[in-house]
Design a protein around this nucleic acid. Structure first.
Lengths: 159, 159
DNA sequence: AAAGTTGTGTACTGAAGAGTACAATACTCG
DNA sequence: CGAGTATTGTACTCTTCAGTACACAACTTT
């Protein structure tokens, strides 16, 4: 009940994603975001709480959308297929002209002020999490005999 | 004549370099810089003009200092020696614990707001310039018979 | 030693940032 | 159809940013 929201949450998130992706966390200002999202400032705060929480929502949508291939790739049956699919995903995503350049998780808060310290840590944790997922997948591949015994799966994953 | 400056310009630039390297152009605030440089705000402006000009000075010092190996490497007699020295320089610089992480020229203004648009372009130009220098060196190597005829020196340099 | 010149420190300015108060509005449920 | 609730738009607040005015201090030259 109450007055219905006049914009679509997911669509607004997509617009916000584009802005954050292009300018990073600190580089994206609230006026910039509201303009791209087509809403007013209080609507943004009512719907998402804060710039930081909006960014977390955007990250979630980013992982479920543009980089969803990463989670999918890990389900491939062989280490080679996993790697091939990851690389193909990287290449398609990074060279697609429709996307802003680079990876939001990498340069979203790479070199910035104290304001985004917690965001920076969170992004680093997500990246670490991905490396760990690949590592575990490669570890399993060694156990399966898919990769040679003695393979340094941790180093391979990080590479 | 006049009152002598109470701080050393080069030392102050080194301190500023550290701050910019760590936080990027926008992430480094004037209070942050003045504190690290051990000077007051008007001294900074009297000596360097503006944050942007200070950053340009810092870039100059960066290229003459931490990444001076890049220009040196190009003087090596063979393409292989050039490449080896470049790689050795990258590795030493990027893994040295005394340095902030990454390369100032790369993430100094990677994802940021409109404020640093001109800085971003300038850094991109510097990076392009370096690639072109390597390309020209490789082109010369092909002419010398040091690299095989038909080598795509431009692609090799960018890689 | 006095005049001239340049650096220093305190305290300001105007702009832009994130976040919010409040009245008006538009919907649902009883 | 009226009461209650959630969203919207305008207009604010507080903080921090880059840059500066101005009086004072320290040095050189005449």
């Amino acid at each position: 009940m109450g007055r219905p929201r006049e914009f679509d949450l997911d669509e607004a998130l997509d617009r916000a994603l584009d802005v954050f992706w292009r300018h990073g966390y600190e580089g994206a200002t609230i006026p910039h975001l509201t303009k791209a999202m087509g809403i007013n400032r209080p609507s943004l705060y009512a719907a998402f709480g804060s710039k930081e929480q909006l960014f977390r929502n955007v990250i979630h949508r980013y992982r479920a959308g543009p980089v969803a291939y990463a989670a999918e790739a890990l389900k491939e049956p062989t280490a080679r297929a996993v790697t091939e699919r990851l690389f193909a995903g990287f290449m398609c995503g990074l060279t697609n002209r429709k996307n802003p350049r680079g990876c939001l998780l990498v340069h979203g808060a790479l070199a910035s002020g104290d304001e985004s310290a917690s965001i920076r840590q969170e992004l680093a944790a997500i990246r670490e999490e991905l490396v760990n997922a690949i590592r575990d997948r490669f570890k399993q591949a060694v156990k399966d005999g898919d990769l040679p015994t003695g393979t340094d799966y941790a180093a391979l994953a990080r590479y």
